[in-house]
């Protein structure tokens, strides 16, 4: 049963990943990327890594990809010029792809991760909490790397926000000023007589 689910998820994952790079419409490519993330979250669930799987869905599918989609939907990409250099760069691209594949095989192959080197982990009992284990490790053994990573991320956020703050003449609302506004500032009541007295000329016309 578990094998069937794994192969289904893996097949969807591979299909989606292939579609991301081959499909022409950028919005569709983004949607396939979302599908790829989702099915890899499923594969992680099978590995009993439910915290990582749910966080992948929460952060990447739920937030990052929404912003991706947001940007991609607003782009008006003309696809023809993008494909001009395809044949020219094909050999170089193939070379790089082959290189990456060889590297991956060398590192992740059976020499380092075979069953004789790393035996498959025994399934945990039902009360085993992957979330708690990660939390305990993250805040005790790996607390310094964790803190350093969060500081780096904070610096990146501050940098990104400062970059967008450069244009000074952007319009913005001052909420406290808006709240302070009274009726007298905006509305002027003019008292007028309901039936103005008729002038001589108007009477003459009648």
């Amino acid at each position: 049963m578990e094998h069937i689910i794994f192969y289904c998820l893996a097949a969807i994952l591979l299909f989606a990943a292939t579609m991301v790079v081959t499909v022409r419409n950028p919005v569709r490519a983004t949607l396939f990327l979302i599908l790829a993330f989702f099915s890899s979250a499923g594969v992680w669930l099978l590995l009993e890594a439910e915290f990582l799987a749910l966080t992948l869905v929460l952060v990447y599918v739920g937030a990052v990809m929404v912003l991706f989609l947001f940007v991609v939907m607003m782009l008006d990409i003309d696809l023809a010029p993008l494909q001009e250099g395809f044949t020219k760069y094909l050999p170089l691209g193939m070379f790089v792809a082959a290189l990456i594949t060889i590297e991956m095989i060398a590192v992740l192959g059976a020499n380092h991760f075979g069953l004789d080197v790393v035996p498959s982990p025994s399934p945990h009992p039902a009360d085993y909490s992957n979330t708690r284990e990660i939390g305990l490790l993250l805040y005790t053994v790996y607390v310094y790397p964790f803190e350093i990573a969060s500081v780096i991320l904070t610096v990146a956020i501050v940098a990104a926000i400062t970059l967008t703050l450069r244009q000074k003449n952007s319009k913005s609302q001052d909420i406290s000023q808006q709240v302070k506004v009274r009726r007298e500032d905006r509305v002027r009541i003019v008292k007028m007589q309901s039936s103005p007295t008729k002038t001589k000329e108007q009477e003459a016309q009648l």
């Binding site: 919005v27 749910l54 869905v57 929460l58 739920g62 937030a63 929404v66 939907m73 992957n130």
Partner: peptide
């Protein structure tokens, strides 16, 4: 009755926005 129920709820509800975004596009 899963262990990370709260996370599951957060993760699943965060996907609801795709229906709206894709419908709009």
């Amino acid at each position: 009755n899963i262990d990370a129920g709260l996370l599951y709820i957060l993760a699943i509800t965060s996907m609801g926005v795709y229906g709206i975004v894709i419908a709009g596009w």
